[in-house]
Simulated scan of single mutants.
Amino acid sequence: MKEKKPERLKVLSIIAIVLGAVALVSSWMPFVNNGSFVIAIISLLFGIVGLIFNLKNNKLLSLIAIIISVISIAIVIVTQASYSSALDSAGKEADKSIKKSNDKTNGNNTNKYLKNVDVDLGQLQTNDDGYGNIDTKMNVNIKNTSSKKINYSFTVQAYSSSTTKLGDPEYIEVELKPNESIQKTIFEYLPQDKVQSYKDATYKITKVQDNSY
């Protein structure tokens, strides 16, 4: 017996409603709603087909399927835009955090950090121990002149001329409360044949980094 066309269209509309409902339920879920969008499109197409070929009969099921599908598609678009915006904001915040962290350690803020401290690089002191060995040291006095606790690392370089570095730099790490002072010793145990060169050298703070988090 030949199946009636309206019955086939009714089944198509019911399938469209079921697919639309599945799409609607999952339309707000990240990543999952990519599939929901496809399901909603299929549901919409089924609903439209059912509506077009069922103009002379009850169109309620087709209309319901179309409405559910359109709502699902709209939710997917809105949520995808929202997630994209959230991810973009998170990415920008991460970039800012990385840049801020790098600015603390790459030396770009050296002059800024030096305004928070009073650093006195003393003279290189030498002492002959009587056995032909010359002991060396340089006392460095550092005071935190800011109103906040600091945790800084200083790089001190000796120069034999205005641009020529003499040996490796020395490093000082301090953690000071406001108005707190400390004395550190650097340039100890210098090569004996370089002592005079270091006595004649000039010394500069070439880098300050902030170790606080």
Results as ranks from 00 to 15, higher is better:
residue 21 A to L: 15
residue 17 I to C: 12
residue 58 N to S: 12
residue 15 I to W: 08
residue 54 N to I: 05
residue 29 M to P: 00
residue 31 F to W: 11
residue 29 M to R: 08
residue 42 I to N: 09
residue 23 A to R: 08
residue 28 W to E: 06
residue 41 I to P: 10
residue 24 L to V: 05
residue 36 S to P: 00
residue 54 N to D: 11
residue 49 V to C: 08
residue 35 G to W: 09
residue 54 N to R: 08
residue 57 N to A: 13
residue 30 P to D: 05
residue 20 G to Y: 09
residue 49 V to M: 14
residue 47 G to Y: 01
residue 23 A to V: 06
residue 38 V to M: 12
residue 42 I to M: 15
residue 19 L to M: 15
residue 61 L to I: 02
residue 40 A to F: 04
residue 35 G to M: 14
residue 55 L to C: 03
residue 16 A to L: 08
residue 53 F to T: 06
residue 22 V to C: 11
residue 27 S to K: 06
residue 26 S to Y: 10
residue 31 F to G: 02
residue 54 N to A: 08
residue 54 N to M: 04
residue 46 F to H: 01
residue 53 F to C: 13
residue 50 G to L: 00
residue 44 L to F: 10
residue 39 I to C: 06
residue 36 S to C: 11
residue 44 L to P: 07
residue 36 S to Q: 03
residue 17 I to Y: 00
residue 23 A to E: 01
residue 17 I to M: 14
residue 61 L to A: 10
residue 57 N to G: 08
residue 58 N to G: 11
residue 23 A to N: 01
residue 45 L to N: 02
residue 21 A to M: 11
residue 56 K to P: 12
residue 31 F to M: 10
residue 53 F to H: 15
residue 46 F to R: 04
residue 39 I to N: 03
residue 60 L to K: 14
residue 38 V to T: 12
residue 36 S to G: 14
residue 60 L to A: 10
residue 41 I to H: 01
residue 58 N to Q: 05
residue 50 G to S: 09
residue 31 F to I: 13
residue 25 V to R: 03
residue 15 I to V: 14
residue 22 V to I: 15
residue 53 F to Q: 12
residue 47 G to T: 01
residue 44 L to Y: 02
residue 48 I to N: 01
residue 52 I to Q: 07
residue 50 G to H: 00
residue 36 S to L: 02
residue 52 I to D: 08
residue 16 A to P: 09
residue 39 I to V: 14
residue 25 V to I: 13
residue 40 A to T: 12
residue 26 S to A: 10
residue 57 N to S: 14
residue 60 L to V: 13
residue 24 L to G: 00
residue 43 S to Y: 04
residue 60 L to C: 11
residue 45 L to W: 09
residue 32 V to G: 09
residue 40 A to R: 05
residue 48 I to P: 00
residue 38 V to A: 15
residue 21 A to I: 14
residue 37 F to T: 06
residue 46 F to Y: 12
residue 61 L to V: 06
residue 13 S to N: 12
residue 54 N to S: 12
residue 24 L to E: 00
residue 38 V to H: 07
residue 14 I to S: 03
residue 49 V to F: 15
